[in-house]
């Protein structure tokens, strides 16, 4: 694996409060990485540290380029970075064309070459007809695309996206995700995309970095992280599953409120927490598995899910039984054990 972006022991304090505590991870060059974390986990701070916009310590490297080494820091504009800010940070006085020309001129690209690059970039993002408009005269989606054009027009090697879909409505989210994916594949830049939406992360990411309370708590290929979350915190970040208490025996089988099940993930013995996802549960014939009460039925457009009461914990599975009815459920596959449980 060719390491593109590597950051090690990044510590950042703002107003005498430590926001990042020795955060470390590495992202393969040219890959699309998502940083997933709850609000206040330090995701945006990490992005700003990588961009050199706020002071930090630690080591940050992208390919052969050393961005930060201890307290030695490369100036932000020399890092070859594009940044899509959460609130966009557009310049209200400038037209779309002027936005891009300002960036290109600052990067030393002038005259006809800059003009051509600007025209091409705007056309790629469907903004050619709006090149003389200012941000105030554009819709939310157009502003979003203009911000993306500004971030990529100078062909950055590293693209940082700070919650790029947080300001768009549900209907446009998919459109923006597709746009991001296509653009990033085309430019070949390494992408670091901050989000708190696990669905968005799984849809886009080759590589996933999970953050909690200023630390990187797990990283790896998105599929690996999904299959084996390393802690309850990560499991909760990944969403759509329920944390169920189990007792794992020496044979790898666990006693759980869902019966005796084979578990995967960490090789923990004794009391532990396991992550049970809807795909781990299936309806069974009466007498096969365990009987559970349906709390409510959730209509989800294409199908239905049921919310079941599993020893006080809500678990979801596919099915359309009415609330209050009793169904027999058994476990299929191997729910991952995520963390030992103190008794």
């Amino acid at each position: 694996m060719t390491h593109g972006l590597v950051f090690t022991d990044v510590v950042c304090s703002l107003d005498e409060q430590e926001i990042l505590h020795a955060a470390s991870a590495s992202v393969p060059r040219g890959s699309y990485a998502c940083v997933l974390g709850a609000s206040g986990a330090g995701k945006s701070t990490l992005l700003r540290c990588i961009a050199g916009l706020i002071p930090c310590t630690g080591r940050i490297r992208h390919g052969e380029q050393v961005l930060q080494d201890g307290a030695q820091s490369r100036a932000p504009h020399l890092r070859k970075i594009g940044f899509l800010f959460q609130a966009l940070g557009l310049w209200p006085e400038l037209s779309a064309a002027e936005h891009l020309l300002t960036v290109l001129n600052a990067a030393g690209i002038r005259g006809a070459q800059a003009q051509a690059r600007m025209e091409a970039e705007l056309a790629d993002l469907g903004l050619a007809a709006l090149k003389n408009r200012r941000p105030g005269e554009m819709s939310g989606g157009e502003r979003q695309r203009l911000a993306l054009a500004r971030a990529t027009v100078h062909r950055p090697e590293l693209l940082l996206l700070d919650e790029p879909t947080s300001s768009v409505d549900q209907a446009r989210k998919r459109e923006v995700r597709t746009l991001l994916y296509d653009l990033c594949r085309r430019t070949g830049a390494t992408v670091l995309h901050v989000t708190h939406d696990h669905e968005e992360a799984f849809e886009l990411a080759d590589h996933l970095i999970c953050m909690d309370a200023g630390r990187v708590v797990q990283e790896g290929a998105a599929a690996d992280v999904h299959a084996a979350p390393s802690s309850v915190a990560v499991a909760q970040l990944l969403g759509s599953g329920s944390i169920v208490s189990v007792t794992v025996g020496e044979d790898g089988l666990a006693d759980s409120p869902l019966g005796r099940v084979r578990v995967s993930g960490k090789s923990v013995r004794g009391a532990a927490w396991a992550l049970v996802r809807p795909e781990h549960l299936e309806l069974a014939a009466v007498g096969d598995g365990v009987p559970l009460r349906v709390r409510r039925r959730l209509f989800q457009g294409g199908g239905c899910q049921m919310e079941l009461d599993v020893a006080g914990v809500s678990c979801r599975m596919q099915g359309a039984a009415q609330a209050g009815t009793e169904v027999w459920v058994r476990v299929r596959g191997q729910p991952p054990v995520v963390e030992a449980r103190s008794v």
Binding site: R48, L53, H77, R79, G89, L90, V103, A106, R150
Partner: peptide, 20 residues
């Protein structure tokens, strides 16, 4: 702040940063 940071990242000089 994002607008200022975007200008800084692009390498715009202080006059341009002030203007935009």
């Amino acid at each position: 702040r994002d607008g200022m940071d975007a200008a800084r990242l692009s390498g715009a000089n202080s006059l341009t940063r002030f203007r935009v």
